[in-house]
Simulated assay, not measured.
Amino acid sequence: MDATHNSARPSPATTPAGGAARHNVFCTIVPPHVLDKLARAEDPALADPALRTLATDAAQRTRRRITTVRGAVAAPPRADADKPKRTIYDTKHHETLPGRKVCGEGDKPGKDETVNRAYAGLGATFELYLKAFGRKSIDDSGLPLNATVHYGEDYGNAFWDGERMVFGDGDGEIFLDFTIPVDVIGHELTHGVTQYSANLEYFGQSGALNESMSDVFGSLIKQYSLGQTADQADWLIGAGLLAPRVTGEALRSMKAPGTAYDDDVLGKDPQPGTMDHYVQTSRDNGGVHINSGIPNHAFYFVAEALGGKAWERAGQIWYDVLTGGELGSDAQFTDFARLTTAAARARYGEGVEQKALLKAWAQVGVPTS
Protein backbone atom coordinates (compact mmCIF):
# COMPACT_ATOMS: atom_id res chain seq x y z
CA MET A 1 0.00 0.00 0.00
CA ASP A 2 1.32 3.42 -0.94
CA ALA A 3 1.02 4.99 2.47
CA THR A 4 3.11 6.59 5.17
CA HIS A 5 2.21 7.33 8.77
CA ASN A 6 2.46 10.97 9.80
CA SER A 7 1.64 12.32 13.23
CA ALA A 8 1.47 15.91 11.99
CA ARG A 9 -1.93 17.36 11.29
CA PRO A 10 -2.60 16.74 7.59
CA SER A 11 -3.19 19.65 5.30
CA PRO A 12 -6.63 20.09 3.72
CA ALA A 13 -7.40 17.71 0.90
CA THR A 14 -6.21 18.59 -2.55
CA THR A 15 -7.80 17.62 -5.84
CA PRO A 16 -7.11 13.98 -6.66
CA ALA A 17 -4.91 13.09 -9.60
CA GLY A 18 -6.64 13.66 -12.89
CA GLY A 19 -8.95 16.31 -11.44
CA ALA A 20 -11.80 13.82 -11.02
CA ALA A 21 -14.97 15.35 -9.65
CA ARG A 22 -15.06 14.46 -5.98
CA HIS A 23 -18.85 14.42 -5.74
CA ASN A 24 -19.37 11.82 -8.49
CA VAL A 25 -19.18 9.15 -5.82
CA PHE A 26 -19.13 5.42 -6.45
CA CYS A 27 -18.94 3.90 -2.98
CA THR A 28 -17.88 0.31 -2.27
CA ILE A 29 -17.74 -1.53 1.04
CA VAL A 30 -14.43 -3.31 0.31
CA PRO A 31 -11.60 -0.76 -0.04
CA PRO A 32 -9.44 -0.78 -3.19
CA HIS A 33 -6.28 -1.48 -1.16
CA VAL A 34 -7.77 -4.81 0.01
CA LEU A 35 -8.59 -5.87 -3.54
CA ASP A 36 -5.17 -4.71 -4.75
CA LYS A 37 -3.56 -6.98 -2.17
CA LEU A 38 -5.72 -9.92 -3.23
CA ALA A 39 -4.99 -9.31 -6.90
CA ARG A 40 -1.29 -9.92 -6.21
CA ALA A 41 -1.91 -13.31 -4.57
CA GLU A 42 -0.06 -16.26 -6.11
CA ASP A 43 -3.20 -18.42 -6.05
CA PRO A 44 -5.33 -17.66 -9.16
CA ALA A 45 -8.44 -18.67 -7.20
CA LEU A 46 -7.84 -15.58 -5.05
CA ALA A 47 -6.25 -13.22 -7.56
CA ASP A 48 -8.60 -13.66 -10.52
CA PRO A 49 -11.86 -12.71 -8.74
CA ALA A 50 -10.10 -9.69 -7.20
CA LEU A 51 -8.83 -8.57 -10.61
CA ARG A 52 -12.32 -8.91 -12.10
CA THR A 53 -13.81 -7.00 -9.17
CA LEU A 54 -11.26 -4.19 -9.57
CA ALA A 55 -12.02 -3.98 -13.30
CA THR A 56 -15.77 -3.88 -12.64
CA ASP A 57 -15.38 -1.22 -9.96
CA ALA A 58 -13.24 0.90 -12.30
CA ALA A 59 -15.88 0.70 -15.02
CA GLN A 60 -18.67 1.60 -12.60
CA ARG A 61 -16.62 4.48 -11.21
CA THR A 62 -16.11 5.87 -14.71
CA ARG A 63 -19.79 5.48 -15.54
CA ARG A 64 -20.74 7.30 -12.35
CA ARG A 65 -18.33 10.14 -13.15
CA ILE A 66 -19.84 10.61 -16.60
CA THR A 67 -23.51 10.49 -15.62
CA THR A 68 -23.59 12.30 -12.28
CA VAL A 69 -23.76 15.99 -11.54
CA ARG A 70 -22.83 17.52 -8.21
CA GLY A 71 -25.28 16.78 -5.45
CA ALA A 72 -28.68 15.16 -5.58
CA VAL A 73 -32.13 16.65 -5.83
CA ALA A 74 -34.86 15.00 -3.82
CA ALA A 75 -37.95 13.88 -5.70
CA PRO A 76 -41.39 15.18 -4.67
CA PRO A 77 -42.47 13.43 -1.45
CA ARG A 78 -44.57 10.32 -1.87
CA ALA A 79 -47.97 10.40 -0.18
CA ASP A 80 -46.93 7.29 1.75
CA ALA A 81 -43.32 8.37 2.28
CA ASP A 82 -43.33 6.87 5.78
CA LYS A 83 -43.59 3.38 4.29
CA PRO A 84 -40.77 1.60 2.45
CA LYS A 85 -41.03 0.82 -1.25
CA ARG A 86 -38.50 -1.91 -1.98
CA THR A 87 -37.69 -3.68 -5.22
CA ILE A 88 -35.06 -6.41 -5.60
CA TYR A 89 -33.56 -7.33 -8.97
CA ASP A 90 -31.33 -10.24 -10.02
CA THR A 91 -28.65 -9.99 -12.71
CA LYS A 92 -27.96 -13.75 -12.52
CA HIS A 93 -24.19 -13.13 -12.43
CA HIS A 94 -24.19 -10.67 -15.32
CA GLU A 95 -23.31 -6.98 -14.95
CA THR A 96 -26.20 -5.29 -16.73
CA LEU A 97 -28.20 -3.27 -14.23
CA PRO A 98 -30.76 -3.45 -12.82
CA GLY A 99 -31.48 -7.07 -13.83
CA ARG A 100 -34.81 -8.90 -13.62
CA LYS A 101 -37.27 -7.95 -10.90
CA VAL A 102 -37.64 -10.81 -8.40
CA CYS A 103 -39.25 -9.18 -5.35
CA GLY A 104 -41.40 -6.15 -4.67
CA GLU A 105 -42.76 -4.41 -1.59
CA GLY A 106 -45.02 -6.70 0.41
CA ASP A 107 -43.99 -9.91 -1.34
CA LYS A 108 -43.51 -12.96 0.86
CA PRO A 109 -39.99 -14.38 1.33
CA GLY A 110 -38.94 -16.73 -1.43
CA LYS A 111 -36.42 -19.54 -1.78
CA ASP A 112 -33.48 -17.26 -2.56
CA GLU A 113 -32.01 -16.23 0.81
CA THR A 114 -29.87 -13.55 -0.83
CA VAL A 115 -33.01 -11.84 -2.10
CA ASN A 116 -34.67 -12.23 1.30
CA ARG A 117 -31.69 -10.73 3.12
CA ALA A 118 -31.45 -7.79 0.71
CA TYR A 119 -35.16 -7.05 1.14
CA ALA A 120 -34.93 -7.29 4.93
CA GLY A 121 -31.78 -5.16 5.06
CA LEU A 122 -33.39 -2.37 3.04
CA GLY A 123 -36.31 -2.50 5.44
CA ALA A 124 -34.08 -2.41 8.53
CA THR A 125 -32.29 0.65 7.17
CA PHE A 126 -35.56 2.41 6.34
CA GLU A 127 -36.91 1.64 9.83
CA LEU A 128 -33.89 2.92 11.75
CA TYR A 129 -33.89 6.24 9.92
CA LEU A 130 -37.66 6.62 10.28
CA LYS A 131 -38.09 5.51 13.89
CA ALA A 132 -34.91 7.02 15.33
CA PHE A 133 -34.60 10.22 13.32
CA GLY A 134 -37.93 10.77 11.56
CA ARG A 135 -36.26 10.49 8.16
CA LYS A 136 -38.45 9.16 5.37
CA SER A 137 -36.09 7.01 3.33
CA ILE A 138 -32.74 8.00 1.91
CA ASP A 139 -33.80 11.40 0.58
CA ASP A 140 -36.35 12.13 3.38
CA SER A 141 -39.08 12.13 0.72
CA GLY A 142 -39.84 8.42 0.48
CA LEU A 143 -37.27 7.49 -2.16
CA PRO A 144 -37.94 3.92 -3.40
CA LEU A 145 -35.19 1.53 -2.33
CA ASN A 146 -33.84 -0.58 -5.17
CA ALA A 147 -31.25 -3.32 -4.93
CA THR A 148 -29.64 -5.78 -7.31
CA VAL A 149 -28.27 -9.15 -6.17
CA HIS A 150 -26.09 -11.88 -7.71
CA TYR A 151 -24.14 -9.23 -9.56
CA GLY A 152 -21.21 -10.34 -11.71
CA GLU A 153 -19.06 -13.43 -11.56
CA ASP A 154 -17.54 -13.99 -8.10
CA TYR A 155 -17.90 -10.23 -7.61
CA GLY A 156 -16.21 -9.34 -4.32
CA ASN A 157 -17.93 -6.13 -3.36
CA ALA A 158 -21.16 -4.24 -2.73
CA PHE A 159 -21.79 -0.66 -3.79
CA TRP A 160 -24.12 2.31 -3.89
CA ASP A 161 -24.04 3.90 -7.34
CA GLY A 162 -26.20 6.92 -6.53
CA GLU A 163 -29.40 5.13 -7.43
CA ARG A 164 -29.33 1.60 -6.09
CA MET A 165 -27.59 -0.96 -3.93
CA VAL A 166 -25.70 -3.71 -5.75
CA PHE A 167 -24.46 -6.91 -4.10
CA GLY A 168 -21.94 -9.47 -5.26
CA ASP A 169 -21.92 -13.07 -4.07
CA GLY A 170 -18.21 -13.03 -3.25
CA ASP A 171 -15.72 -15.65 -4.35
CA GLY A 172 -16.32 -18.05 -1.46
CA GLU A 173 -12.59 -18.03 -0.73
CA ILE A 174 -12.16 -14.58 0.83
CA PHE A 175 -15.61 -13.02 0.73
CA LEU A 176 -19.02 -14.60 1.23
CA ASP A 177 -22.38 -13.22 0.11
CA PHE A 178 -22.44 -9.44 0.64
CA THR A 179 -26.05 -9.46 1.84
CA ILE A 180 -25.08 -11.43 4.97
CA PRO A 181 -24.07 -8.45 7.18
CA VAL A 182 -26.98 -6.03 7.58
CA ASP A 183 -24.48 -3.28 8.46
CA VAL A 184 -23.03 -3.56 4.94
CA ILE A 185 -26.49 -2.79 3.56
CA GLY A 186 -26.95 0.07 6.00
CA HIS A 187 -23.45 1.38 5.26
CA GLU A 188 -24.02 1.63 1.53
CA LEU A 189 -27.49 3.14 1.80
CA THR A 190 -26.12 5.75 4.20
CA HIS A 191 -23.89 6.94 1.37
CA GLY A 192 -27.20 7.89 -0.20
CA VAL A 193 -28.26 9.79 2.92
CA THR A 194 -24.96 11.68 2.80
CA GLN A 195 -25.45 12.30 -0.92
CA TYR A 196 -28.81 13.95 -0.24
CA SER A 197 -27.66 15.95 2.79
CA ALA A 198 -24.07 17.07 3.42
CA ASN A 199 -22.76 15.66 0.10
CA LEU A 200 -19.29 15.24 1.56
CA GLU A 201 -16.52 15.20 -1.00
CA TYR A 202 -15.05 11.76 -1.47
CA PHE A 203 -11.41 12.61 -0.93
CA GLY A 204 -9.07 13.07 2.01
CA GLN A 205 -10.61 13.90 5.38
CA SER A 206 -14.04 14.80 3.99
CA GLY A 207 -14.06 11.44 2.20
CA ALA A 208 -13.02 9.68 5.40
CA LEU A 209 -15.92 11.42 7.16
CA ASN A 210 -18.18 10.22 4.34
CA GLU A 211 -17.03 6.64 4.93
CA SER A 212 -17.24 7.02 8.69
CA MET A 213 -20.83 8.25 8.49
CA SER A 214 -21.70 5.05 6.65
CA ASP A 215 -19.88 2.88 9.19
CA VAL A 216 -21.56 4.69 12.11
CA PHE A 217 -25.09 4.36 10.79
CA GLY A 218 -24.45 0.90 9.37
CA SER A 219 -23.46 -0.19 12.87
CA LEU A 220 -26.48 1.55 14.39
CA ILE A 221 -28.79 -0.23 11.94
CA LYS A 222 -27.30 -3.56 13.02
CA GLN A 223 -27.64 -2.66 16.72
CA TYR A 224 -31.22 -1.45 16.21
CA SER A 225 -32.14 -4.65 14.35
CA LEU A 226 -30.69 -6.79 17.14
CA GLY A 227 -32.02 -4.64 19.98
CA GLN A 228 -28.50 -4.11 21.32
CA THR A 229 -27.19 -1.48 23.68
CA ALA A 230 -23.77 0.06 23.13
CA ASP A 231 -22.06 -2.34 25.51
CA GLN A 232 -23.64 -5.36 23.80
CA ALA A 233 -22.60 -4.39 20.25
CA ASP A 234 -19.51 -5.86 18.60
CA TRP A 235 -18.78 -2.58 16.74
CA LEU A 236 -17.55 -4.56 13.73
CA ILE A 237 -18.31 -3.62 10.13
CA GLY A 238 -18.86 -6.64 7.91
CA ALA A 239 -18.80 -9.40 10.52
CA GLY A 240 -19.80 -12.64 8.79
CA LEU A 241 -18.54 -11.46 5.40
CA LEU A 242 -15.06 -13.02 5.54
CA ALA A 243 -14.73 -16.67 4.53
CA PRO A 244 -13.51 -19.24 7.11
CA ARG A 245 -9.98 -19.36 5.66
CA VAL A 246 -9.43 -15.65 6.45
CA THR A 247 -7.78 -14.73 9.74
CA GLY A 248 -10.04 -11.91 10.81
CA GLU A 249 -13.42 -10.90 12.19
CA ALA A 250 -14.63 -8.25 9.77
CA LEU A 251 -13.60 -5.46 7.38
CA ARG A 252 -13.26 -2.83 10.12
CA SER A 253 -13.55 -2.39 13.87
CA MET A 254 -14.92 0.84 15.33
CA LYS A 255 -13.98 -0.21 18.85
CA ALA A 256 -10.37 -1.04 17.97
CA PRO A 257 -9.39 0.28 14.52
CA GLY A 258 -6.55 -1.73 12.98
CA THR A 259 -7.57 -5.07 14.53
CA ALA A 260 -10.33 -6.33 12.23
CA TYR A 261 -8.04 -8.73 10.34
CA ASP A 262 -4.44 -9.84 10.14
CA ASP A 263 -4.22 -12.36 7.34
CA ASP A 264 -1.44 -13.84 5.21
CA VAL A 265 -3.35 -12.91 2.04
CA LEU A 266 -5.25 -9.75 3.02
CA GLY A 267 -2.43 -8.35 5.13
CA LYS A 268 -3.10 -6.37 8.31
CA ASP A 269 -5.97 -3.97 8.84
CA PRO A 270 -4.35 -0.53 8.23
CA GLN A 271 -6.88 1.68 10.01
CA PRO A 272 -5.53 4.12 12.61
CA GLY A 273 -7.51 4.90 15.73
CA THR A 274 -5.93 8.28 16.48
CA MET A 275 -4.37 11.21 14.63
CA ASP A 276 -0.93 10.08 15.83
CA HIS A 277 -1.11 7.39 13.15
CA TYR A 278 -3.01 9.26 10.43
CA VAL A 279 -2.11 7.71 7.06
CA GLN A 280 -0.92 9.97 4.25
CA THR A 281 -1.56 8.20 0.97
CA SER A 282 -2.43 8.98 -2.64
CA ARG A 283 -4.46 5.78 -2.95
CA ASP A 284 -8.08 5.10 -2.05
CA ASN A 285 -9.00 8.75 -2.71
CA GLY A 286 -6.54 9.87 -0.06
CA GLY A 287 -7.23 7.01 2.35
CA VAL A 288 -10.97 7.44 2.79
CA HIS A 289 -11.47 3.84 3.98
CA ILE A 290 -8.34 3.96 6.15
CA ASN A 291 -8.49 7.23 8.08
CA SER A 292 -12.23 6.80 8.68
CA GLY A 293 -11.05 4.73 11.64
CA ILE A 294 -10.36 7.95 13.54
CA PRO A 295 -13.89 9.45 13.56
CA ASN A 296 -15.25 5.88 13.91
CA HIS A 297 -13.22 5.50 17.08
CA ALA A 298 -14.51 8.84 18.40
CA PHE A 299 -18.11 7.74 17.86
CA TYR A 300 -17.46 4.49 19.70
CA PHE A 301 -16.01 6.41 22.66
CA VAL A 302 -19.06 8.69 22.79
CA ALA A 303 -21.52 5.79 22.55
CA GLU A 304 -19.64 3.83 25.19
CA ALA A 305 -19.54 6.81 27.55
CA LEU A 306 -23.25 7.57 27.18
CA GLY A 307 -24.36 3.93 27.30
CA GLY A 308 -27.81 2.64 26.45
CA LYS A 309 -28.99 2.54 22.85
CA ALA A 310 -26.34 4.24 20.76
CA TRP A 311 -28.77 5.65 18.21
CA GLU A 312 -30.68 7.60 20.85
CA ARG A 313 -28.03 10.16 21.84
CA ALA A 314 -24.70 9.55 20.12
CA GLY A 315 -26.45 8.70 16.84
CA GLN A 316 -28.80 11.67 17.19
CA ILE A 317 -25.85 14.05 17.51
CA TRP A 318 -24.16 12.59 14.43
CA TYR A 319 -27.44 12.78 12.49
CA ASP A 320 -28.00 16.40 13.56
CA VAL A 321 -24.62 17.36 12.11
CA LEU A 322 -24.99 15.30 8.92
CA THR A 323 -28.36 16.86 8.08
CA GLY A 324 -28.13 20.23 9.84
CA GLY A 325 -26.81 22.22 6.89
CA GLU A 326 -23.61 23.49 8.55
CA LEU A 327 -21.34 20.61 7.54
CA GLY A 328 -19.41 21.80 4.49
CA SER A 329 -18.81 19.38 1.65
CA ASP A 330 -15.05 19.76 2.18
CA ALA A 331 -15.25 19.41 5.99
CA GLN A 332 -12.14 18.27 7.85
CA PHE A 333 -12.04 16.24 11.07
CA THR A 334 -11.69 19.37 13.20
CA ASP A 335 -14.80 20.88 11.56
CA PHE A 336 -16.80 17.77 12.32
CA ALA A 337 -15.51 17.57 15.88
CA ARG A 338 -16.48 21.19 16.50
CA LEU A 339 -19.94 20.72 15.00
CA THR A 340 -20.73 17.54 16.93
CA THR A 341 -19.70 19.20 20.17
CA ALA A 342 -21.91 22.20 19.37
CA ALA A 343 -24.79 19.90 18.37
CA ALA A 344 -24.53 18.06 21.67
CA ARG A 345 -24.73 21.36 23.55
CA ALA A 346 -27.64 22.61 21.42
CA ARG A 347 -29.74 19.49 21.93
CA TYR A 348 -28.78 18.42 25.45
CA GLY A 349 -27.14 21.45 27.08
CA GLU A 350 -23.76 21.47 28.80
CA GLY A 351 -24.18 18.02 30.30
CA VAL A 352 -22.77 14.52 29.98
CA GLU A 353 -23.29 14.45 26.22
CA GLN A 354 -21.07 17.46 25.54
CA LYS A 355 -18.47 16.17 28.01
CA ALA A 356 -18.46 12.81 26.25
CA LEU A 357 -17.86 14.54 22.90
CA LEU A 358 -15.00 16.64 24.21
CA LYS A 359 -13.32 13.64 25.81
CA ALA A 360 -13.80 11.39 22.76
CA TRP A 361 -12.27 13.81 20.29
CA ALA A 362 -9.39 14.41 22.69
CA GLN A 363 -8.83 10.64 22.90
CA VAL A 364 -8.41 10.39 19.12
CA GLY A 365 -6.35 13.60 18.90
CA VAL A 366 -8.78 15.81 17.00
CA PRO A 367 -9.21 19.41 18.30
CA THR A 368 -12.74 20.71 18.82
CA SER A 369 -11.87 24.37 18.43
Rank of each mutant, 00 (worst) to 15 (best):
L209A: 03
R345S: 13
T334C: 10
Y119K: 07
T148N: 06
V246N: 04
T125F: 09
E95R: 14
G315Q: 11
D264G: 11
P98V: 04
N116V: 07
G204K: 00
G192C: 07
F203V: 15
Y348H: 07
D234F: 00
A342P: 05
Q195Y: 12
E42H: 12
Y319W: 13
D171E: 06
V34W: 14
E113A: 14
A72E: 11
E42Y: 11
R100S: 15
K37H: 07
D107K: 05
K108T: 11
L251Y: 03
G365T: 03
M1N: 11
P270L: 01
P10F: 08
R78H: 11
D171H: 09
Y348F: 13
H289K: 09
P49A: 02
T56V: 13
N291V: 06
Y300K: 02
V25A: 12
S225E: 06
L236I: 00
I221R: 01
A256E: 06
F178N: 00
R100Q: 15
T368C: 08
A75I: 09
A158L: 02
E127M: 09
S369T: 14
I185Q: 10
K255L: 04
A344G: 15
P77A: 15
I221Q: 06
E312W: 09
K131E: 14
P257E: 05
D139G: 06
D161R: 05
A41R: 00
P10Y: 05
T259Q: 00
K83H: 13
A8K: 10
L242A: 03
P295W: 00
G152P: 04
G170Y: 06
K255T: 01
P270H: 01
E312Q: 14
T190H: 13
G106N: 08
P272G: 00
G172A: 04
R117G: 03
D57T: 12
A59K: 15
E249Q: 08
N210K: 14
E312L: 11
L357P: 01
H93K: 14
G19F: 07
S219W: 02
E113Y: 11
T4Y: 07
H187D: 08
L122T: 05
E163K: 13
I185C: 14
S197K: 05
A120Y: 01
Y151C: 04
A233C: 03
G293D: 06
H23Y: 14
Y278K: 02
S329H: 13
W318F: 14
S197T: 15
P32C: 07
D171A: 07
D269P: 00
N296V: 07
A342H: 07
S212P: 04
S282T: 12
F301N: 13
G204D: 02
F175Y: 15
D139Q: 01
D112F: 09
Q195I: 08
S292T: 09
K111F: 06
L357N: 12
Y261S: 04
N291R: 00
T62Y: 08
P32E: 14
V73Q: 13
V184D: 09
N116W: 06
G349I: 05
A260F: 03
A47N: 02
G156K: 05
V246I: 10
A360W: 03
M254V: 04
K108I: 04
H5A: 11
N296L: 09
Y319M: 15
K108Q: 14
P257A: 04
P84N: 12
A21H: 14
D284F: 02
D82N: 13
G240E: 07
Y319E: 12
A20Q: 15
A331D: 05
